[in-house]
Each structure stands twice: as C-alpha cells, then as structure tokens.
Design a protein around this nucleic acid. Sequence first.
RNA 1: GCCGGUGUGGCGGAAUGGCAGACGCGACCGACUCAAACUCGGUUGCCCGAAAGGGCGUGUGGGUUCGACCCCCACCACCGGCACCA
Length: 855
Amino acid sequence: MTDAGDQETSDYDIQSIQAKWQAYWEAEGTFVTRDDDPRPRKYVLDMFPYPSGDLHMGHAEAFAFGDIVARYWRQRGCNVLHPIGWDSFGLPAENAAIQRGANPVTWTYDNIAQQRESFRRYGVSFDWSRVLHTSDPEYYKWNQWLFLRLFERGLAYRKESWVNWDPVDQTVLANEQVLADGTSERTGALVVKKKLTQWYFRVTEYADRLLDDLNQLEGAWPSRVLQMQRNWIGRSIGADVDFVIEGRDEPVTVFTTRPDTLYGATFMVVAPDSDLAAELVAGSSDEVRMAFEAYLERTGRLTEIERQDAERPKTGVPLGRWAINPLSGERLPIWAADYVLADYGHGAVMAVPAHDQRDLDFAREFDLPVRVVVDTTAPVTGAVPVIVTDPATGEPMQPVDLAEIDPAVTGKALAGDGRLINSGPIDGLSKQHAITRVIELLEERGTGRAAKNYRLRDWLISRQRFWGTPIPIIHGADGELVPVPEDQLPIVLPPTDGLDLKPKGQSPLGAATDWVEVPDPRDGSPARRDPDTMDTFVDSSWYFLRFLSATDDTRAFDPAAAERWAPVDQYVGGVEHAILHLLYARFITKVLFDMGLVSFTEPFSALLNQGMVLGTDGKKLSKRSGEGATFAGQLEEHGADALRLALAFAGPPEDNIHWDDVRPAAAARFLGRAFRLAADVSSPPEAVWQDGDLALRRATHRFLAEGAQLAESLKFNVLVARLMELSNAIRRTVESQGPADPAVREAVEVLTIGLSLFAPHTAEEMWERLGHAPSVATAGWRRPDPALLVEDTVTAIVQVNGKVRDRLEVPAKIADAELEALARASENVQRAIGESQIVKVIVRAPSLVNIATKG
RNA sequence: GCCGGUGUGGCGGAAUGGCAGACGCGACCGACUCAAACUCGGUUGCCCGAAAGGGCGUGUGGGUUCGACCCCCACCACCGGCACCA
C-alpha cells in the first residue's frame, strides 16, 4: 500500500507517523483526565460499543465525530473527559458460544481486546484509565444494587401478562425491541405473544416527566429523536367513564379521548383476551359462551401482524350483557372484538360509531345503531349555546340536514369539531367545551373523571438467558420475593462448565443447582435464586455515571464526581437507539434524581445522531455487502487520519452517507499537501506574524473565528472545507510571497491546530516540523484578532430589479450616498436600466445597492 | 390515517432574506514521464455568443418583499416514526 509513498514522499509515511504518535500519547498520558484540573469541564461520550467482532465503518464514523468534539474542547482549554467502555453482556456472545461450543466469556473478552487495539490504531483520544465492561462483576454488582433500589421503591415488580416472545432466542423482549412489522429487533423472527410472569420496571410512572422533559432538550437533541420519543410515550388526554353493568357489582371503566360524545355511545366493546371479557361472558347463556370461546380461539391464532391490520374487516361477538350510560341511562349491548386491545386503557371502550371510524366500521358490520351527536357542519363559536343566524336573512338557521354526511350511510365517521346535538345538557356546546362539561358532570355524579393514558408500557427487563446480570432476588418457599442482602453482592454468574446454554425457554441458570439453591436470607430455609438475567439495556442505562469513578468498589458512582462532570455535554450515537437506550437512560436518571443521587434529570445535554454508512445498495455497510470497505482494511490502506477526515467531510454528520462518497484517497492527498506546507515553512518559530502578508493573515483569523463556530455547531464537513480553503490560500501565498513570510508560518500553525481535530497524527508531525514541542492536541485554539476580521475594502454588488449587474470594490466604510452614486455611474447598471424609470433605490452600504425600476 | 423531515450541477454538499453552487469528487485539457501511475496547473450549472455580454436556473404552482434556495399558502415526490392506542 505504501509503495508509491515510500519512494516519493519518504517524509510523509502515515503508518510510521501513526505508530510514533500513538506511542507518545500513551507514554505521556496526554488524554488522561484528572478530576482536580480546575479548567472548565466537558464530558464527551460516544455510545459504547458491543463487542461483536472488530470495529466496523459505522464505529469509524461515530467515534471520529466524538473525537472531533473532544479534541475541539481540549483545544479550547477545557478539561475534557472522553472515556470508553464495552456493553459486553448480551445474546450475540451467548449464541456464538453455543454455536462454537465455546465460552461467552472468552468470545467477549477476545473481541474487546481486538476492538481496543483498533481504537488505539485509530488514534481516538480516550482516557484509557477509566475503561469498564458491563460483564465484569465489578460493574454488574452495581446493576444489581440499582435493581434493589428500584425494587424497594416499588419500581421493579413482577406481574403476569401477555409478553413478546422471541422464538429464536427463546426469551421475552421489551416492547421497544419489537419492530413495527412485529419481528424481533435482534433475530428478525416473528414475535409471538405468551402469557408469562416477568420482571418489569415501572417506566409508566415516569411517563409524564419523560414526555414533558423532552422540552428541555429542544434544539440540543435532533428533532427527529424528540418526535420519536413523544410518539412512543403517546400520551392521550381524556376521561375515564364508569359504566354500571347489569348483574355485576362493580362498574366497568373505559377510557375515552372524546367524553363529549358520550351521548353518542351505542354499544360497548371489550378485548376478547381480557379477564373482563371472560368474566362477563361467564354470566351469559351457553350459546353466547360457546360463540365467544370460538371467537377467542380464532383471535388467538392470529399473528400480531394480522391482528394489527386495520384494513381487516371487523369481527366480534355479543356477550349478552348490558352496560348503562352514566349520563343518559341508556342500555348498551356489550360486545367482544379484537380491535380493542387488552393492555391499553382498561381493555374496554365505549363505542361511538358516528364519531370514531373503528366503531363505525364495527357498527356497520353488525347493524348497530349510529347516532350523530356532534354537528360537524356547524360553526364553532363559544361555550354557551347560541342560535346561529343566517347572515343573509337574519333568520335563525335551521339545524343542518345531516343526512348527506350521515356516517351510517357514508361510512365515514365525523371526527372533526362542531356543535353538540342530541346530547341533553350539553347540546349546543363546542367539542372542547363539551369535553370539559361532561367531565364536570361525571365528577359530580362520581361516575367518571379526567384521565390520561399512554402508549408506553412498563419495561420488561427479565431475560431467560445466561449472559447477563443475575437478578438479585431470592424466591422463598412461601413465594415471597426476598432481596439479596447488599453485602452479598455481586451475585456472580456461575461457571459455564456443565451448563447447557441452549435456548429452551427457561434460564440456563435454573439448572445450575449449586448456584440457584440458596438459604432464605430471612431464616436459612431452602430457597431459590431468581434464574433470570437482566435486559442489557439496564447495564447501559447508567454506564455514563460509572466512568466518573470507574474503579470505586464502594458505590455505583461518586455523587460528587457526578456533580462535577454530569450530565454528558455531548453524546454521540446512532439513531437506532432513538427510543430504546435513550428512553431507558432518561428513566433511570430520573429515578436517581428522585433518590437524591444526582442533581439533574436529563442524562445527555446534547445529542448527535450520526447517520449510517451505506453501501452502493443503499444498505448498511456490512461484511456481506463488503465492497472492500472494512475498518481494518481502510486503516491499512489510507491510515487513520485520511479515513477520519474523509468520513467527516462526506456530508453533514447526521445524514446517512454512501461509502462511494467517502474518499479517503482524496483526504490523504489533502493531508499530503498540508504536510508539505509545514515542511515548506522556512521562518523561525519566533517569527513576528504582524510582518506577514495581510491577506493571508486575514484568511487565517477568519478561519479561527468561523471554524470555532462550525465545530460548536457540529458542522464538521464545512469545517473541513474551511481547512482546505485555508490550505489553498497558504499555497498561493507561498507561491507569491515565498515560504519565509511570517504569515505563512502563522497560517500553517493554525491549519495544524485545526487539523488536529480530524487528523491528529499528521497534525502532531506537522507541529514538530514547525519546531514546536508536542502535543499539538493541547496547543490551544488561538484567539482571532478582531482587527483582522474587518476588511478595508469589500465587493459591493449592484442589482437592478434584484439581478446582479455589477460588482464594485469599495472602502468598507463607504457612506450610503457615495455608494449609490458609484452604482448609478456604472456602465452595466445604466445599460440595464435603459429607458426605465427608477422608482426606488435600496442601499445597504457597503455591500449592496438595489435599483428598482418601472416600465 | 396521524406526526415529523428532506428536495440545490454528473455526484457528496455549501449558502437561512442580499454575488446560488463554497469545498471536494468525477470528467475534460495541459505539464512532468519513453509510457503509465502518482503529483502539479487549468476548465467545468444549462443555453445563446468569437468575445463583451445576455437568457434560464435551487421539486411544482401561487404569494409576501426593492430583493426569496431561505419566509407564507397549496400541491408533488422521497425518507423516517407511530398506527385498530379508544
């Protein structure tokens, strides 16, 4: 790879330069962060990698971005914390181990060693003294500690429920791990529903805060991610309404976002797979019961995708029971239908077919009555009923003939706003006012209340697999859940010898007899450990705090260190975690806040979601699509600096990029030119810049000012372009003024400092060539001289009717009148005006004159 | 269906109310070379023109403005999220 380079530019051999400076940084501890450093602190973090083989191009991009930010703030004189660790528990290790009959421990730590070496060769400025692996007992001990804290606060609990089951990995999944098409995020297998007792974290208790606090992140997180989180939490505001059921003591509560349409309810629907349906039908005739059983059986056979297909015709069976409308007293038949979900709201709805499309589809299918209670053609004018008059005649308007838009006929539900009709005490009100009024009426009667509902479900955290954090709970013989006493933590995984790790629907830990059978902490009687392990997203929900005191074996993290460093100033990672990891980390942070352990409620103050690196086929670069673009291969062929620079230059960091558009060879060419500039500089380090070429000095200082802004707004691609412009300007000056011009030295030094964010090895070598002591990483971003940021002369543009007709070199301090006179005098301008009349002249000295003409 | 985002040369992109296309890739021409590669220099939105210069041009149609890639309205296309969520 280096044959051409060897003979021609023996000076710039990137591989030996890399090795030299990597060894230097390591020996000097250049990037080790000290807590007692008094400078302003910045915490820059990339989402830690999962050790599944070597690093790939996605890592190369993401970690380049994180490193640019870290290196920028270091140049700005900050004490930067930029740690690294591994998210090293999880199924790929376990599955790989099963396939090869190997040990997940060996597989995992071998991969970590390889990735670690790759990071080192990539020249990422990590503080290696704080490395953590979530699969180390020293780490997962604190996972268990965290679980116990949630358990004692009632935020970790067990319940039986319908859960998502991955038939390939043979374990349950969190809602967040099931993709929109009903397949497993991990294995791609079609997820099936199973009724199981599992461990949950009570995320829903934090739903409001998780939603409302997103407002704090506006502008600092990508709007796409904020939107996705809001969608996922899915708050609906409305009312709970209690319906008395004939022949049942307890009323049935339903949630609705449209309490205003209560008078339009003509039947009630319950989810067929709910306990409520089973109970209600138990009180019905044999005939009804048999029809229901058959229906329930049929529903159970549907896949999740089939069931969620909104186009599918509505199905259902009557339950032979009746509900009483709490306001109108009307008797409503109760049906079971699978378009109502057991686990949202109360698993039952009041059906208002005139104003809800799903209810209407169902009503039309089964010939149930449709009653319009909102005249959506009526103007909405206010709170009190008013008689609307015809503006033409002044006569009171007759109620609109609704036949034309009758949902029973058109099949289209009337979802819009309007004026209430057929609704007794709320007739005439607008939708909004009717909602308020109905809730008041229900509350007065004690048969309903304002309510909220969420799409978000509690986080299912138990997994029936081996390679994860054991859940620190002991099941007493009496069925009690006994927390493991803290002094017995960590509960360390048993050795894999003799354990069958194959997925079989139950945790392999249950078969480790010596491990699972323990005395009950209460009285020493025989008891069993919980055999499940935790979702690895628990591990990653707080790891950013562990870095702050990574070796402290007395606590999960040091609150004083958290106070100093956290929250993370800049977080960098893929959009695939827009919901999963980020939601969980936000949740755990709020729990820690409630525990008084941290003083902030959001873990990541700013977030950069880097795009993906795609192959020509538009798919994520993988070993399969290949195209020769492996991380290791590119590192070998072009070197770390060219790869980093090319990735940063390929486009805005948040956009996906195609590997074809990443040009490491072009980046290497640019680095070679920059390096030669440093070699060309022939003035001494103490040269007086003020004596140098003014135009170049201006360009240099403009770069200092603009480059800083670009770095802070994460516009790395533009920042690289500015470095190239500066480099071009320097070359021109070398040609015209010679390499001894002090302005050339100044500019090359600034270029080197700028390059140190992207191409740290080349920059170090240039810095040394320039006669400076290492390291350029801490040389400092120079302050632009304000005097050099203002120009003496500027190019004014002269427009006629908005079209540019001339350009004038004018003094920057030119007066409006003078500029206008010059503009009018221009030959091109006169020609453009011709015979037309000048109607208006806009002058914005010194940059613009616009002459508007007529005729 | 609901919500959000994006549309600029052959390509990646820059410009957030004031010179559209910075910077780079690619292409073409030239220098170096026996030759090629590398490297270096030049040209490069489209159309008319020898040139000067002119016309057109930021998805489409309209609007606001002296002036619009940028702001407003409508539409089209693509991408993403959610979706039988009551």
